[in-house]
Amino acid sequence: MSEVNAAPTRPGANGDVVIDVQHLTKKFDGRAVVRDLSMQVKRGTIYGFLGPNGSGKTTTIRMLCGLLTPDEGTGTCLGYDIRTQTDKIKTQVGYMTQRFSLYQDLSVRENLEFIGRIYGLENPRAAARAAIKRLGLSGREDQLAGELSGGWKQRLALGACTLPAPQLLLLDEPTAGVDPKARREFWNEIHALAADGLTVLVSTHYMDEAERCHEIAYIAYGELLVHGTVKHVIAASHLTTYVVSANSGALNELSQDLTGKPGVDMVAPFGTSLHVSGRDGAALEAGIAPYRRRADLDWKKSEPSLEDVFIDLMIKAQDNFK
């Protein structure tokens, strides 16, 4: 009988929602960095957290793992209260900080063993050895962590936060400054971990990475503006987009002409093409009509990219903020 009563406080018992927070607000010196943020993340999901610099991504992640106390709002992480049970949360969460935060003057192996000991692994040496092998760091285990290149540092950091086999991974811009190959390998790793039932919350600036997530959320000025699958987010934007191809001189000129025209909300260059988007389809059509007849420009209607959607959201949020 008592087990039934105890059930709701057990990790993951709350349906299969791993993160469940409502109306989180965090202020620094009276300035709200996160405002009224609510979100749910299900077990086994890779949840992408997107937003411009200073939008409150890191602050939200820190509130989830007990590094910051929310000023307002409530919620649970792995079934534990994020205000009162941070000690419990910390034992089950792997947190990869934005800045490399392992000991630069310890070797790869020493760093991993240290973490293994803190989390109380039975055999930290063996765990570290296994992790070194898994991460492909064999041969570098005695190198100082500070001497590793960016890609290897990131791999080590991922290995460190997964070492105690946590139930939830919080990754704060894990691929910033990492080359494309290492990034791809990193994401393959994340998907493999998620397939094993691990829940991953990952913040990023990269649109291609957003598309690798099961679900995404976009946050700007501390507010969660939209969330759902990539498809859902794009569809919900109601954005009409045209892709214009031409030589670069003509595009540059066109870009300047179109910016600020009624109906045209966004003009963004993408290499040899230009994305022209508007929230009101009819108004956009009217706005670009004079240019569509030009022979040197090739107009194509297309689906907006995730980046178009996000930049649009950001502009809207900025308008609301003013």
Binding site: C65, G66, L67, D87, K90, T91, V93, Y95, T97, R99, F100, S101, L102, Y103, Q104, I115, I118, Y119
Partner: peptide, 13 residues
């Protein structure tokens, strides 16, 4: 200063 405190605080210690 070295940024390792954030990692240390996130651990159960």
């Amino acid at each position: 200063e070295r940024g390792t405190m954030e990692n240390l605080l996130a651990m159960p210690i």
